[in-house]
């Protein structure tokens, strides 16, 4: 269980960072989404992993899972969802106005030939 969750977080983060470093808006936004998934799972796990236990008081139940990380994750999910929508809109606006989806500023040294090669 711990190994599965930990490696899932690690894999999501690694993939997210790789995509963010692509520096084209579409992969970058995908990478950001993967990173937010990773952080959501991480936040969820920060209250320790408990299987099959309720987060609220129930009569006759001895073990509980920590309810606070669940509330934090909900907040984080809502915020990251809104942020992704905003960044998609801004990136779309930037792409439509400049016909280019590169995240970096245009460099003088960058030639079209190199672009094709990559």
């Amino acid at each position: 269980m711990e190994f599965l969750v930990a490696s899932a977080i690690g894999l999501l983060t690694a993939a997210g960072i790789y995509l963010v470093l692509r520096l084209r808006t579409f992969p970058v936004i995908l990478g950001m989404s993967l990173l937010t998934y990773a952080v959501n799972v991480f936040l969820f796990a920060s209250g320790r992993l408990t299987i099959g236990a309720p987060p609220i008081l129930v009569k006759g139940v001895e073990t509980y899972t920590d309810p606070l990380p669940q509330a934090l994750v909900l907040t984080a999910i809502v915020i990251s969802f809104g942020m992704t929508a905003v960044v998609v809109m801004i990136a779309l606006g930037a792409f439509l106005s400049s016909e280019d989806d590169a995240v970096n500023d245009a460099e003088e040294t960058e030639t079209p030939a190199q672009e094709d090669a990559s």
């Binding site: 990380p69 934090l72 915020i79 990251s80 801004i90 930037a94």
Partner: peptide, 26 residues
């Protein structure tokens, strides 16, 4: 708009890092 995209992406990365920090602290 291009500067805006950079600004938003950088800060989104910062926010993700913030959540990781908060999770670790918690």
């Amino acid at each position: 708009l291009r500067a805006g995209v950079q600004y938003v992406l950088f800060n989104l990365l910062g926010s993700t890092l913030f959540l990781f920090a908060l999770g670790a602290i918690y």
